[in-house]
Amino acid sequence: KAVLCADHGEKLQLFCQEDGKVICWLCERSQEHRGHHTFLVE
């Protein structure tokens, strides 16, 4: 069962290295995470 983003309802499948947390693809494109290094997690 996928864990969903509290903000967007999308699957949490990216790890943001700068923030040390898992985010969704919409979070990654938001101003908050712009320019951060993210990695796909399974």
Rank of each mutant, 00 (worst) to 15 (best):
residue 1 K to A: 05
residue 1 K to Q: 04
residue 1 K to V: 07
residue 2 A to D: 11
residue 3 V to K: 12
residue 3 V to I: 08
residue 4 L to M: 15
residue 4 L to I: 13
residue 4 L to Y: 12
residue 4 L to W: 06
residue 5 C to P: 01
residue 5 C to L: 00
residue 5 C to Y: 02
residue 5 C to V: 00
residue 6 A to W: 03
residue 7 D to F: 04
residue 7 D to K: 12
residue 7 D to V: 14
residue 7 D to E: 12
residue 7 D to I: 11
residue 8 H to S: 00
residue 8 H to W: 00
residue 8 H to V: 00
residue 9 G to W: 05
residue 9 G to V: 02
residue 9 G to N: 15
residue 10 E to V: 03
residue 10 E to H: 03
residue 10 E to S: 04
residue 11 K to S: 14
residue 11 K to I: 10
residue 11 K to Q: 05
residue 13 Q to Y: 06
residue 14 L to G: 09
residue 14 L to F: 10
residue 15 F to K: 12
residue 15 F to P: 06
residue 15 F to A: 06
residue 16 C to H: 04
residue 16 C to L: 01
residue 17 Q to K: 15
residue 17 Q to M: 02
residue 18 E to L: 00
residue 18 E to W: 02
residue 19 D to E: 14
residue 19 D to L: 00
residue 20 G to R: 09
residue 20 G to P: 04
residue 20 G to V: 03
residue 20 G to H: 06
residue 21 K to W: 03
residue 21 K to E: 12
residue 21 K to T: 07
residue 21 K to G: 06
residue 24 C to D: 00
residue 24 C to Y: 01
residue 24 C to V: 00
residue 24 C to R: 00
residue 25 W to F: 12
residue 25 W to V: 11
residue 25 W to A: 14
residue 25 W to R: 15
residue 25 W to N: 14
residue 26 L to Y: 11
residue 26 L to N: 10
residue 26 L to Q: 15
residue 26 L to G: 10
residue 26 L to A: 11
residue 26 L to T: 11
residue 26 L to H: 09
residue 27 C to H: 02
residue 27 C to S: 00
residue 27 C to R: 02
residue 28 E to R: 09
residue 28 E to S: 08
residue 28 E to Y: 04
residue 29 R to K: 10
residue 29 R to H: 13
residue 29 R to N: 13
residue 30 S to Y: 04
residue 30 S to G: 08
residue 30 S to V: 03
residue 30 S to A: 11
residue 31 Q to N: 11
residue 33 H to N: 07
residue 33 H to P: 01
residue 33 H to L: 05
residue 35 G to L: 06
residue 35 G to E: 09
residue 36 H to T: 01
residue 36 H to K: 02
residue 36 H to C: 03
residue 36 H to N: 02
residue 37 H to K: 15
residue 37 H to S: 08
residue 39 F to Y: 14
residue 39 F to D: 06
residue 40 L to K: 08
residue 40 L to A: 15
residue 41 V to Q: 15
residue 41 V to P: 12
residue 41 V to E: 12
residue 41 V to I: 06
residue 41 V to M: 08
residue 41 V to W: 10
residue 42 E to C: 03
residue 42 E to T: 15
